[in-house]
């Protein structure tokens, strides 16, 4: 059973207020002199994503058995099954609807869906956002400006922005 922790709301008197002002200004000055930056400069640097990152989907047509389960489970109705010339049904993904929940990845018992680390994608128009099966299979065009990736690490409560060299994000996350 948790205990009760009753806090006292301070009502600072005059010397305490002066101290508060000085402390606030002191903290500001300290940060001004020794800045602790946490932001990354996005197009030049990119945050290192964890291996289980839920990015765009990668599809492996050879493993798919057209079981329709991914389309059935998709919460956003982003997956539609389209009939291919060979008579089988294959999924298409509408990225206008997809919410990157990766239920489809977890649903597919054959492992036909895989996650990738792409997340900053641009489509020319709304129609393009519907990736048909052929488009899904085609490797995406990658244009990158970044030279390094940044990883947040901590040592004894201090943030260390670890810089990694150019990271390959075209590969699917590890299984």
């Amino acid at each position: 059973m948790p205990g009760i922790y009753r806090i006292k709301v301070p009502s600072p008197d005059f010397p305490r207020r002066v101290k508060g002002h000085l402390e606030a200004i002191g903290t500001g000055l300290k940060e001004l002199i020794v800045p602790n930056r946490v932001t990354t400069q996005y197009p030049r640097e990119r945050r290192k994503l964890s291996d289980n990152f839920r990015g765009m989907l990668q599809y492996d047509i050879d493993k798919c058995i057209s079981c329709f389960q991914c389309a059935f489970a998709c919460p956003a109705n982003a997956i539609v099954m389209k009939k291919a010339p060979n008579g089988k049904y294959y999924p298409c993904v509408n990225y206008a609807k997809c919410i990157f929940c990766h239920f489809c990845v977890d649903v597919c018992s054959k492992g036909a869906w895989k996650a990738s680390k792409f997340m900053d994608v641009a489509f020319p128009d709304m129609e393009e956002m519907l990736l048909t099966t052929e488009k899904l299979l085609r490797p995406p065009e990658v244009e990158r400006e970044d030279e390094r990736s940044v990883e947040y690490e901590f040592r004894a409560g201090k943030l260390i922005m670890k810089k990694h060299p150019f990271e390959d994000i075209t590969q699917a996350g590890k299984d």
Binding site: R17, E23, A24, E31, F154, A156
Partner: peptide
């Protein structure tokens, strides 16, 4: 676990500049 230490440490600074700031009070 490390994140909790980070937040704990940074909250101390945050307390000085905002939480206990006389203007905020």
């Amino acid at each position: 676990k490390e994140v909790t230490f980070f937040i704990e440490r940074k909250t101390k600074d945050f307390e000085k500049i905002f939480i206990m700031n006389p203007v905020t009070a």
